[in-house]
Each structure stands twice: as structure tokens, then as C-alpha cells.
């Protein structure tokens, strides 16, 4: 049950990422000038008939964020009470701290008129929070808890390459967020060429950021291909690795396509927002591969939790011996 709830929280978080990306894509970030109130109302009592124009996006984002915050409180409390692993208790608290900090950052960026640094930090912390929820989902899964030594992967190369790929993806997302929040999304207006050439013909800070994002896309694509190729070559029979490896290849292909279409469509709202969401999914998928590659370094079976798993999908029960 805890695993299912964690999955639900992670799913709500990706919905929250979508809502946030719509706020930026529609330039609605300042359509509700006050925070935490909404046009003077308590945000939970703001009348639906006033949810018009940019308010619809910004206010919905705030409500979904509040819901995710509430769910995270439950998740953290549940982990603290039911999961015997001490580090999992702290991971739950980390999730709670991250979502609270994220809410404060969101409020500050509104009150200070969306300064690029704060808005970018807001976007970056959103990805970190999403990663924490995905990690909690994975760590509470039956497959992780069983951690059978006979089938565990202990591949140092995979650990290194997958970890590097995840870090690269996160860095690429930060560059993308910087590009979005500095208005550099169309600084290079054509694709695949740049001002009609292979390299930009002139430079300014916005062009440099945009160019870095394109180069980053190439680097990330190569890193993902390398990770996936390693998985398929060395761990062909390991479905817990080959499935996310196949998924991330598809997601990266989709992401590059969405990035190109974002430029070619002059930042169409739907395409632009989908680009942000798929970016988060690429990061999460890479994180899953990375964490599974590190599974061998964790305890073999999760003690009492293992005893409480007579069948797949069994509810995690509180156990006395933390690991």
C-alpha cells in the first residue's frame, strides 16, 4: 500500500510539473500578483468563476502544488511510522522539506516578479523533488525490497555511466530552465541550423544559453545511448534494466523532437510544456536505471520487510529492526 501511495504521489508530482510548465509557457506566472493569497482570497476559496486567462494556469498550479504538499506530509509520516529503514525515514522528511522549500520559492518568485535565478531554482528543485518521489517509489517496491543476491547486478561500469548520465540530464534540465526563464527559447530561431549555419554567426548571453542547451541535448543523447547500449549488451536478460533502458531511448527521441518543434512552432504552448514534462520523465527513468545499478551496494534483503512480502505487491508493514 505504501508503495502504491508513493507511486500516486510521484504521479501527482509529474502532473504538478505539467501545471508549472503551462504557467511558464503561457507567461501566466504573474497573473496572480499576491501570494499565498489569490486576489486577496484564501487560495482554497477563490471562486472558480474567476479562474480565467492566466489565472487559470497559475491558480491551478498553486492548488495542485498544495495537494502534492499535503500528500507528501502523509507520505513522510507513513514512511516514518511504517518503514524500518532509518534512511528511508529521512528520505521522507527530505521530500517534505523539498516540497515546502519549493512552495516558498514559488511564492518568492511571484513576489519578486519572476527573477530568473529564483525561477530557475524553482524549476531545478521541482526536478529534485520529483526524483525523491520516484526514488521513494522505487525503494518501497517489492522488487527493490527483495533484492535477491542471485539476480542482483553488480556492474561498476554501469554504475558509473548511469550515474554520469543522470547528472548530465539534470544539468541539461537546469540549462533548459535557465533558457526558459531568461526568455532565450527562441534566441536561435531556426533548427537544426543556427542562423542558417552549423554554428551561431553572432553571440550574446541568450544565444549562448540556447546554444548550450542544444549542445547539452547532443551530449545527453549520447550518454543515454551509451547507458542503454551497455545495458542491452551486458544485461540483456535483466528486465528491470532493459525496460527502462528501452523507455529512455524512446523518451530521448521524443524529447529531441519536442525541442525542435518548440523552436519551429515558435514555442507553441502544448509542445513547449510537453518538452518540460518529457524532460522530467527522462531524468526519472535515468534515475531508476542508476539506482537499480547501485542496488547491489544496498543490503541484500530488507530484513523484516522481506518477511512481510510473501507475494508481490504486498503491503509494507511496520517492522522493528531498521536497516
Amino acid at each position: 500500500m505504501l508503495h502504491r501511495f508513493a507511486t500516486f504521489v510521484a504521479g501527482c508530482t509529474i502532473l504538478l510539473v505539467l501545471a508549472g510548465s503551462l504557467v511558464t509557457s503561457t507567461a501566466s506566472g504573474l497573473s496572480v500578483p499576491d501570494w499565498p493569497t489569490t486576489y486577496g482570497w484564501n487560495m482554497f476559496t477563490f471562486p472558480p468563476q474567476h479562474w480565467v486567462g492566466g489565472i487559470l494556469y497559475e491558480h491551478s498550479h498553486r492548488l495542485i502544488a498544495s495537494t502534492v504538499g499535503f500528500l507528501t506530509i502523509i507520505l513522510a509520516a507513513w514512511l516514518w511510522r511504517a518503514d524500518p529503514r532509518r534512511w528511508m525515514k529521512w528520505l521522507g522528511l527530505a521530500a517534505l522539506g523539498a516540497v515546502v522549500a519549493q512552495g516558498v520559492l514559488g511564492g518568492i518568485t511571484v513576489l519578486f516578479f519572476l527573477p530568473a535565478a529564483i525561477s530557475t531554482a524553482h524549476a531545478g528543485l521541482a526536478e529534485i523533488f520529483f526524483c525523491i518521489t520516484v526514488a521513494i517509489t522505487l525503494f518501497t517496491s517489492p522488487g527493490w525490497i527483495r533484492g535477491d543476491s542471485a539476480v542482483r547486478v553488480d556492474d561498476r561500469v554501469l554504475r558509473n555511466i548511469a550515474t554520469a548520465t543522470t547528472i548530465l540530464i539534470f544539468a541539461q534540465i537546469l540549462i533548459g530552465a535557465t533558457m526558459r526563464h531568461t526568455g532565450a527559447g527562441l534566441a536561435i530561431p531556426d533548427f537544426p541550423l543556427m542562423f542558417g549555419h552549423l554554428m551561431p554567426t553572432h553571440w550574446d548571453p541568450k544565444i549562448a544559453i540556447h546554444f548550450a542547451h542544444r549542445v547539452g541535448a547532443l551530449v545527453v543523447a549520447l550518454a543515454v545511448i551509451a547507458t542503454s547500449a551497455h545495458v542491452f549488451y551486458h544485461h540483456r536478460g535483466r528486465r528491470e534494466l532493459t525496460r527502462p533502458a528501452a523507455l529512455i531511448l524512446g523518451l530521448v527521441g521524443l524529447q529531441v523532437t519536442l525541442g525542435a518543434l518548440t523552436v519551429l512552432s515558435r514555442r507553441d504552448v502544448s509542445i513547449n510544456s510537453a518538452h518540460v514534462v518529457v524532460g522530467a520523465l527522462v531524468l526519472a527513468t535515468s534515475l531508476v536505471i542508476t539506482l537499480r545499478s547501485w542496488r547491489a551496494r544496498f543490503p541484500q534483503g530488507v530484513g523484516s520487510l522481506l518477511q512481510n512480502l510473501p507475494a508481490r505487491g504486498q503491503i509494507l508493514q511496520k517492522a522493528p529492526d531498521p536497516i
Binding site: V32, P33, G40, V52, G53, F113
Partner: peptide, 21 residues
């Protein structure tokens, strides 16, 4: 009969964003 906000974006004066219910 609807909500607005007025958001001034000066370079030398102070920026402001006011709710206009």
C-alpha cells in the same frame, strides 16, 4: 467585470504588479 492585474515593467522606476479585482 473580470479580473485583471496591472504589471509595470520599468527599467529605472520600481517594478510593480497589482491585483485588479
Amino acid at each position: 467585470p473580470t479580473m485583471h492585474n496591472i504589471h509595470a515593467m520599468p527599467k529605472t522606476n520600481s517594478e510593480f504588479n497589482t491585483a485588479e479585482p
